[in-house]
Design a protein around this nucleic acid. Structure first.
Length: 609
DNA sequence: AAAAAAG
């Protein structure tokens, strides 16, 4: 049976190598629903087949705190050759509040990172730009655990961050700290290590940048080694994608404006020479992706021996299988000071227990902090699931986009972010949309860095209000005005789903997330249904039926599957799994909800268990 | 099996 024009187009266009995905129809072939005469396949999915018992996931990995192999000396005294290197210097002679040459940066005037904000203020409506909607932050559940957790603050004024930083906070129009900031900043300022679960878009970057900048300004780091052409940053911030590193860098520049604290970014796909030049001019905070940093370390253009602060953004991704070896190399096998000497801050919106266990290798007597997600688990993101066959996905997507265009989902052009599984799929879908008159761009790891950045810019400005993306765009990216996230292909991991839909409903604004589900996503049925239920979303009856089968299709292909879906729980509290050294089992210690002044009692909802 | 991250 032919279910849509997409099927008929399947054979005609694009005869090469296009396997199962339906090919694009010829130009202008899109026909809006009301002009068509067909039944949408999403109306009545086939019933799920008979149930069979699902195997229990095996989960008995125990990881006792890894031996830290630190290779001596944080300071090699004798690396001679004190070149009067032009440019490499200001960090040597400074210290104390604002003692770092405010406003002048080695002869080069510091660019005002707030300059463009004025222009944006005018182009974007008032309401759009007032930053975070704080009403949405009331009644957010917060959990802390660990020994002697420093109490939260209610205002920035309560914290002694220094004048320069306070001015930048004002310039950023931050009025009061978000929940994650209220807790994380005092904890970090007190010198404690931190593992924090908090949705991006809730002010996470500032939560780890403020204490780092403040700490660097406060201390007297006037003794840095002088090795020709080697940079000695005091803080390292790692993130899993280049675009995210750029974004963190941009934010950190704002926060450190006129503080004298120098922020440099290093990532792959861009010419290294410029990054090397920046590093030679001196660096206090280095923001980087792992690959490029390893390159710089091997070239001895960067040394980590002066690192006092290490922050991992999207920490669970950084410690996932693909990244873990590189991260261990950087953190444990180069010259970085060990936990306890440096301060380590881990942030992510999701934190599976297995990853928490790995992460504890990097931490010393840390505080665990979980802040209820601003987007996903509240009403801010309306989640929908629709049953759509692969062959119908394209036409169905265009129906959605078409309807959206007519109704104007939020007045003016809301942006739509479409996630697909593969890079090839992203290219194909982008082409298909463009050919059918939907202005789309695409971003994925096989495109050049230039193309990636162009696509992102074009999306942000609304020039191409549709962006087709792989998971490269799933995490951390702060794109205002994303009104709709479409999971054209569902991910295989519910945490990835959480991060993807988190691109909308940011900073307290509303968002919509639509997922296309079919028989190819059986393993997601239960986690998805559970997640939606916990978020008070309407779960279609057919999805509940699929979920009831509770398939774990073959063992533990999902290493993160296991218990608490929201990752909002300290794995150290999980007695049966915890045979390790750091057991804070007596959970009452200073943690819990006692410190929270806000209006929620024990009414912490299912999201936290 | 896929994506990301060095060149």
């Amino acid at each position: 049976m032919r279910t849509s024009w997409a099927d008929s187009a399947d054979n005609s266009a694009n005869g090469s190598g296009n396997t199962n995905a339906s090919a694009c129809p010829p130009r202008g072939a899109y026909v809006p629903p009301h002009l068509r005469n067909r039944t949408l396949s999403s109306e009545a999915p086939p019933p799920p087949p008979a149930a069979h018992p699902a195997p229990l996931p095996v989960n008995d990995r125990v990881n006792h705190g890894g031996q830290v192999t630190h290779q001596g000396g944080y300071f090699k005294a004798d690396h001679g050759r004190q070149q009067q290197q032009q440019g490499y210097g200001s960090s040597f002679q400074s210290g104390g509040w604002n003692g770092r040459g405010v406003g002048r940066e080695r002869g080069r005037r510091e660019v005002n990172p707030f300059e463009n904000d004025e222009a944006e203020d005018l182009s974007i409506s008032e309401q759009e730009n007032t930053g975070i909607n704080f009403d949405a932050y009331d009644d957010i559940p917060v959990e802390t655990s660990g020994e002697n957790v420093p109490p939260p603050v209610n205002t920035f004024a309560e914290i002694d961050l220094g004048d320069a930083l306070n001015q930048n906070i004002q310039r950023c129009k931050y009025v009061k700290p978000t929940p994650v900031q209220r807790y994380a900043i005092p904890i970090s300022l007190s010198g404690r290590d931190l593992m924090a679960c908090a949705q991006t878009g809730s002010g996470k970057t500032a939560a780890f940048c403020f204490p780092i900048i403040s700490g660097i300004m406060r201390e007297q780091y006037n003794q840095r080694p002088r090795v020709a052409r080697t940079a000695f940053p005091l803080a390292l911030i790692l993130s899993p994608t280049r675009e995210l590193s750029c974004q963190i860098h941009d934010e950190a520049k704002k926060f450190s404006y006129q503080t004298g604290v120098k922020v440099v970014v290093a990532y792959g796909g861009a010419p290294i020479t410029q990054q090397l030049r920046e590093l030679e001019r001196g660096v206090d905070i280095l923001v980087a992706t792992p690959g490029r940093l390893v390159d710089l370390l091997e070239r001895a253009r960067v040394s980590l021996q002066m690192i006092r602060y290490l922050a991992l953004d999207e920490a669970d991704r950084m410690l996932d299988m693909g990244f873990e070896p590189q991260i261990r190399k950087i953190v444990e096998q180069m010259d970085m000071p060990p936990p306890g000497i440096r301060q380590t801050l881990l942030f992510s919106a999701t934190f599976p227990k297995e990853i928490q266990r790995l992460a504890s290798d990097f931490l010393s007597s840390y505080v665990f902090l979980a802040v209820g997600r601003v987007g996903s688990s509240t009403d801010l993101i309306a989640q929908r699931v629709e049953y759509v066959l692969d062959s119908d996905k394209r036409s169905h997507l265009m129906d959605l986009l078409h309807a959206q265009r007519e109704t104007g989902i939020d007045g003016k052009q809301g942006l739509t972010l479409v996630f697909v599984e593969t890079k090839k799929g992203a290219d194909a879908l982008e082409h298909c949309l463009c050919v059918n008159g939907f202005p789309a761009a695409s971003i994925h790891g096989d495109r050049t860095q230039q193309e990636r950045e162009l696509a992102l810019r074009s999306f942000k400005t609304g020039n191409t209000p549709i962006l087709v993306a792989t998971d490269v765009a799933a995490r951390g990216l702060d794109i205002p005005r994303v009104a709709h996230v479409v999971n054209f292909d569902l991910p295989n991991d519910i945490d990835d789903y959480v991060h993807r839909i988190g691109r909308t409903g940011r900073a307290g604004k509303m968002g919509l997330a639509t997922a296309f589900f079919n028989e190819g996503n059986l393993s997601m049925a239960k986690p998805l249904a559970d997640l939606m239920q916990e978020a008070n979303q309407e779960v279609p009856a057919w999805l509940t039926r699929y979920a009831a089968r509770a398939t774990y299709s073959g063992g533990h292909r999902n290493r993160r599957s296991g218990g608490s879906r929201f990752g909002g729980r300290d794995f150290r509290k999980d007695g049966s799994l915890n045979k390790g050294t750091t057991d804070f089992h007596g959970g009452g210690t200073g943690g819990g909800y006692g410190n929270y002044g806000g209006g929620y009692g024990q009414g912490v909802t299912s999201a936290w268990d």
